[in-house]
């Protein structure tokens, strides 16, 4: 008994040594990323949070203290609250539109037997090669009063006067959808590719028409991937900056640009910090809630 215990001890020691070696190697590899995240992300966030509890006095700028004044200001001022709801509304709309538009494309991409598949995927990714600001500038030329859309509609005789598209919520939503679509398509495509095609055929052979098949088989199997794609899209939309500034104009205030204005234009660091925290917290809470909902659906 004792002999075997010693043997076990030796074996586990050797195993631990081997594992230890592997662990230290792994530590070496993930070290830089960990240090970077700690110093470059967590620390500034902590400092930012501390700033958000300071006060702001015109002339003195940031005053060291411990108060929730900045948060109270945000949640009591209709202007800022409107910016918050507007951001949420745009992000939700963008996410819904992206998921609906992405699905057929992602499905086609995942299931195509074409030898040009890689080329098709490149075409989806291609828009990402153009920066957000440049792309928004492109939309400006399309959406202006003398832009492509208005000129075409007038030429077709559908409208007499140019309609206002620039500086509307519609323009901003279209702009962000265009930015986010490739991400969602690629996420969904990889998920659908992981679903065995013969599972769909099995459903057909058992009497399910394509809609029923999609609802009873494809959708439940793709749901986790859908959630990942949607959450990714939502986070990007909540934090959009260039698109709302360029296509929404000065009146259309969203949270991302608001943070920038408080820090860089008004030098109001405490308020900028608290706006950042409201944005971050709302994004995290909604993401977590969506995740929970999906998990519960998936278990049942």
């Amino acid at each position: 008994m004792s002999a075997s215990a010693t043997d076990d001890g030796l074996v586990s020691l050797a195993a631990r040594e081997a594992r230890g070696g592997r662990l230290s190697m792994a530590g070496l590899l993930i070290g830089p990323a960990t240090i970077f995240v700690t110093i470059g992300l967590l620390l500034p966030i902590l400092i930012l949070f501390r700033y958000s509890l300071n006060d702001f006095k015109p002339g003195l700028l940031m005053v060291d203290t411990l108060t929730i004044n900045q948060y109270v200001l945000f949640f009591t001022d209709p202007y800022y609250l409107a910016a918050f709801w507007r951001t949420l509304r745009v992000a939700v709309a963008v996410t819904v539109i992206c998921v609906i538009l992405s699905f057929p494309l992602a499905y086609k991409l995942a299931r195509t037997q074409s030898r040009y598949k890689n080329l098709l995927i490149m075409l989806v990714v291609l828009p990402l090669f153009v920066g957000n600001a440049v792309r928004a500038a492109g939309w400006i030329t399309a959406f202006g009063n003398k832009g492509f859309v208005n000129v075409t509609l007038q030429w077709l005789g559908l409208i007499d006067e140019p309609i206002r598209i620039m500086y509307t919520e519609f323009a901003v939503i279209v702009g962000i959808v265009a930015v986010n679509l490739p991400y969602v398509v690629l996420t969904l495509q990889s998920i659908i590719e992981g679903i065995d095609r013969s599972v769909e055929e099995a459903a057909y052979s058992l009497g399910a028409d394509p809609l029923t098949m999609a609802r009873r088989v494809l959708w439940p199997l793709a749901l986790p991937g859908f959630a990942a794609g949607a959450i990714f899209c939502f986070i990007l939309a909540m934090n959009a900056y260039a698109t709302p500034v360029l296509l929404g104009g000065p009146q259309f205030v969203m949270m991302g640009p608001l943070v920038y204005v408080q820090f860089a234009v008004k030098s109001n660091w405490p308020f900028g910090a608290s706006v950042s925290f409201v944005l971050m917290t709302a994004t995290l809470l909604l993401t977590a809630a969506a995740n929970l909902m999906v998990l519960r659906r998936y278990r049942n």
Binding site: D196, S198, V199, E201, A202, A203, V217, P220, L221, Y298
Partner: peptide, 9 residues
């Protein structure tokens, strides 16, 4: 089917 194609969920 060769892969059985059972519905995993």
């Amino acid at each position: 089917f060769q892969s059985y194609a059972l519905f995993p969920h």
